[in-house]
């Protein structure tokens, strides 16, 4: 019984970490820098992997649901750090922003520290999530304004 509870907890922890890593990676143009610089400046860490740019082959499916094919590549930057207490953080950033990958790795490490977790979630992850959602909402509302409202022309007699 205990092992089931433990597995569930592990799964939830993984889902949560996947979520914040994604939010950090997908943030755009200096958003992370603005939110995380104060929290990370002066923090001692060593590089496990200095920030470097690489490619991810993006895949699609024939017809959207069929066999997999290679669509093309995209640039991605990644970095890994170790804090003084040994906590390892991995950072990813879409595109080629090395600073973003570095900050993402440090923030990932800090989020794993129980005494810092809530604070960092509130100060970094929540605002990044809000910005992304606001962008998505705005785009969607602009698209919604171009939705066609069909109406039927009633053919009838000339109005009396």
């Amino acid at each position: 019984m205990n092992s089931i509870i433990k597995m569930e907890a592990e799964r939830a922890a993984i889902a949560q970490r996947s979520d914040w890593l994604g939010i950090l990676s997908r943030s755009i143009g200096g958003e992370l820098e603005a939110l995380a610089t104060d929290l990370t400046s002066g923090l001692a860490f060593e590089w496990l992997r200095a920030p470097h740019v690489g490619l991810v082959m993006v895949r699609g499916r024939a017809g959207g649901t069929g066999n997999v094919f290679n669509l093309g590549e995209m640039t991605v930057t990644r970095a890994s750090v170790r804090l003084e207490d040994g906590t390892v953080g991995h950072g990813y950033a879409h595109g080629r922003d090395q600073r973003q990958a570095e900050l993402a790795a440090i923030v990932d490490a800090l989020l794993q520290l129980p005494d810092r977790h809530d604070e960092i979630m509130a100060k970094v992850i929540a605002p990044l999530r809000q910005k992304a959602e606001a962008r998505r909402l705005e785009q969607s509302r602009k698209a919604a304004a171009t939705k066609v409202e069909f109406f039927t022309l009633v053919r009838g007699e000339n109005p009396a």
Partner: peptide, 11 residues
Amino acid sequence: TLPRIAASEPV
């Protein structure tokens, strides 16, 4: 000039 890091899951 760039290394391949990974292949994505199908979008």
